[in-house]
Amino acid sequence: MAITTKKTPVIKLRDLKKRFGIGDAEAYALDGVDLTIKNGEFVAIMGPSGCGKTTLLNIIGLLDRSYFGQYELDGKPVDSISRRKQAFIRSKQIGYIFQNFNLVPRLNIIENVALPLTYSGVTRVNSLIVASDILKLFHLNEREYYMPHQLSGGQIQRVAIARALVNKPTIILADEPTGNLDSRSSHIIMEELAALHSVGNTIIMVTHNANLTTYASRVITMLDGKIDTDSREMPKPEKPKHKRPKAKKTKKKLTAKLKRKKK
């Protein structure tokens, strides 16, 4: 199959279903999701609470394995990938940013950032060096040996982003990354994500905040476990066959019309 576009699909979901409970209590968190996300997209997923956004993100992030339907990552069905290999993909290819930061409280900042490197086989010393370098990018190099509880929310989230990026992943999953932050910090974080997007990373972000979707290249809204609207699949406004009326002209026409009515 010839690749027609530069952007290849990295994530392909077909009729994805996720069920919670059994019998009477059965409920579908995801009820037939079809979604293709291409390399380099910045996707914002929106929707009311309980519509399955986070579940979707967990499945994409290979954390949740109990689902029905098809999930292909880089053209490979995820079912056929061994658990160990999946863990390796998580450490190499996927960066996870959580709403509640999820730093390990026992470890200091630099150790937290170095954590994903440990699991991809980098030696301890090297991983600390790399972690230190990335913390510099986030202007946190002076806080390297602080414990997580000694930092502010915005700083912690920056640490969490640094941790998500330390392995240079191609896919970044963010689950309400600004949910616990004030608007100023939110925008700083969003600028960081936008910058990551601009260098070609795929970002999938779950958010409640409609303002943040302006950073995204594609907005998906979900409702009751299904994709409700998708900005990419919406019909683009077709190019008019005839020339658009000039704005000035239209204005004149309108004023003339109004004048006529008044009369």
Binding site: R90, Y96, V104, L115
Partner: peptide, 8 residues
């Protein structure tokens, strides 16, 4: 957290 970050 460790599993999400790639621990098997």
């Amino acid at each position: 957290i460790r599993k999400a970050l790639g621990a098997s």
